[in-house]
Structures are given as structure tokens and as C-alpha cells.
């Protein structure tokens, strides 16, 4: 039981981290990024390549992969998405356009990874050392990944709530029209938020690659889980990401341990639908008027 809860919390922490990047991209920049999971897998492959090819510790690899994730996402926003932003009359129109554009992007990124690495599953062994915690045996790499996920999430939360730049990012999320009135460049801020989301998903990809097997085509699972967490927690709400992520991780782990591992996806969606029936705007979301 304790082990199932620990595993669930650690899994949930990762889900929360994954979802935080998407909630920035969707909640602030209004880009519904369907290629989100592909970028996570690309970061995982980068980490794999750095570890096996250059013997670079994945934790040090973060220092390379995170800025790369930021840069690539910024470029993507500037080149592919800015034209859509400029022509969109409403945020709704931008969402639809961005879904189509990033759906195409998904196949491009996936295709590149398939041609480079093939369709096989990859993993590497890094700090797969058992440690004992509260009488339970847990893998050190999972513990470190969880700890870093918590640290990144906390840092992001503080940055968004305690700094002027962070507050202006939230201002764009809640009211882009009013944001212009306080001299916020909405397109630039959106680009920054999108790139920050890219940096977060890169971090998540590296951390996940330390303990999970992945393949060129596993991105869609991560997109789906991130989307469930974002919508369940309330779009644009970091606290919602945390709570919904942990709830998802816990329910998966408990069901896999006590019922049937094959039912985890079903439980994901049951939880998702259950929350949306009671709170259509998500746990921490505010209904649109």
C-alpha cells in the first residue's frame, strides 16, 4: 500500500511537471500544442544520446537540453505560429488554427525521430540504485526526478506570482486586451510563455528518460496525459496542475497495484470525466462568462 502511494506520488509529480509546460503554452499563449509529447520524447532522446554517446550525466544534460527546448520552442513560435497569431481574430480561432498546425508538427518531429532512432524502445541505466525510504525500497533515479520536478514546479510558481514578469505573464492569460493597457507586448509575452513551456517539457523529458523506456512514437501518450491534467486542473492554473497531476498519478498507481495494470488509462479518463461533470472549468478553473 505504502509503496503504491509512493509510486503514485512520484508519477503524479512527473505528470504535474509535464502539464505545467502545456498549461503555459495553452493558458497564456493560447496554443493548443498537439506536438507537446513529441518534444518531451525528443528531449528524452537527447538525454539518451548525451548519456550513451558522450557519457554525460543526464542531470548535467539538463543544462543543455533545457535551453535548447526554450530556443527551439521560441523559434517554432516565431516561424510557424506567429503568422497564425497575427491573422486570428479571436482566441478561439487561434486555438483551432494552432491545433491544425501543431498536429502537422507532431508528424514532422515524430518522423525525424523515427528516421534517426527507428521504432524500438530505448532506455538507459542511470542511478538505478535501490534506496530505502520509510521502510519501502524505491529507485534513486525516480526519487531524484521527483525532487527536481517539485523544485522546478515551486520555482515556476514563485516566479509567476512574485515577480513583475511573472505577473505580466498571468495578466496575458487572464485578459490580453487589458494587458496592452499596461504596456505589455502581448505577442512577445506569449512567445516567451510558449518557450518557457518548451523548456519545461524538455526538463520533463530528460527526467523521465532516467527511469522510463520510451520510443519515437510514445509522444502522444504524454500529450494526452498532460492535456487531461491541464483541463482537469483548470487551464492556466499551476496549482491545478499539481493537484490534478498527483491525483492522476495516485489513481493510476493504486489501480495498477490493487486492480489491474491494464485499467490505468480507463481510470485516467474516468477521473477526468468525473471531475468535469462536477466542475466543468476544472478543479481550479473559473467558468467563462
Amino acid at each position: 500500500m505504502t509503496n503504491a502511494i509512493f509510486t503514485g506520488l512520484m508519477l503524479g509529480g512527473m505528470y504535474a511537471l509535464i502539464a505545467m509546460g502545456l498549461t503555459l503554452q495553452y493558458g497564456v499563449a493560447r496554443i493548443m500544442n498537439l506536438s507537446y509529447g513529441e518534444f518531451l520524447v525528443a528531449a528524452a532522446f537527447s538525454s539518451y544520446w548525451l548519456f550513451t554517446g558522450w557519457a554525460l550525466n543526464p542531470l548535467l544534460g539538463l543544462a543543455l537540453v533545457i535551453p535548447a527546448g526554450f530556443g527551439v520552442s521560441l523559434l517554432l513560435y516565431r516561424v510557424l505560429l506567429t503568422p497564425l497569431v497575427r491573422r486570428a481574430r479571436t482566441r478561439g480561432a487561434l486555438e483551432v488554427d494552432s491545433i491544425l498546425a501543431t498536429f502537422g508538427m507532431m508528424f514532422i518531429v515524430q518522423g525525424i525521430m523515427l528516421s534517426m532512432f527507428g521504432g524500438a524502445y530505448f532506455s538507459y541505466s542511470f542511478l538505478a540504485i535501490p534506496v530505502s525510504l520509510f521502510g519501502e525500497i524505491l529507485a534513486l533515479n525516480r526519487l531524484i526526478a521527483f525532487g527536481l520536478a517539485v523544485a522546478v514546479g515551486l520555482a515556476l510558481y514563485l516566479a509567476l506570482t512574485r515577480t513583475r514578469l511573472g505577473t505580466s505573464i498571468r495578466a496575458v492569460a487572464v485578459d490580453p486586451m487589458a494587458a496592452q493597457l499596461v504596456a505589455i507586448d502581448v505577442v512577445r509575452t506569449s512567445a516567451f510563455a510558449f518557450a518557457l513551456g518548451g523548456a519545461l517539457v524538455a526538463a520533463a523529458g530528460v527526467l523521465i528518460s532516467m527511469f522510463l523506456t520510451f520510443s519515437a512514437s510514445s509522444g502522444v501518450i504524454f500529450t494526452m496525459k498532460a492535456l487531461i491534467v491541464v483541463v482537469m486542473g483548470g487551464v492556466g492554473n499551476l496549482l491545478g496542475c499539481l493537484v490534478a497531476g498527483l491525483a492522476l498519478g495516485l489513481s493510476e498507481s493504486l489501480v495498477a497495484t490493487f486492480v489491474d495494470p491494464g485499467l490505468t488509462l480507463a481510470v485516467n479518463f474516468a477521473l477526468f470525466l468525473g471531475v468535469l461533470l462536477v466542475k466543468p472549468a476544472g478543479l481550479f478553473g473559473r467558468a467563462q462568462r
Binding site: 513583475r164 505577473t167 505580466s168 498571468r170 495578466a171 487572464v174 485578459d175 487589458a178 494587458a179 499596461v182 505589455i184 473559473r286
Partner: peptide, 12 residues
């Protein structure tokens, strides 16, 4: 910004 506090509105 209706979802933000008075202090945050003034900061912005």
C-alpha cells in the same frame, strides 16, 4: 484584471 488582486493590478 478581475482575477488578480488589487496589489497585482497596481504592480502591473
Amino acid at each position: 484584471f478581475a482575477d488578480l488582486t488589487v496589489a497585482e493590478n497596481l504592480l502591473l
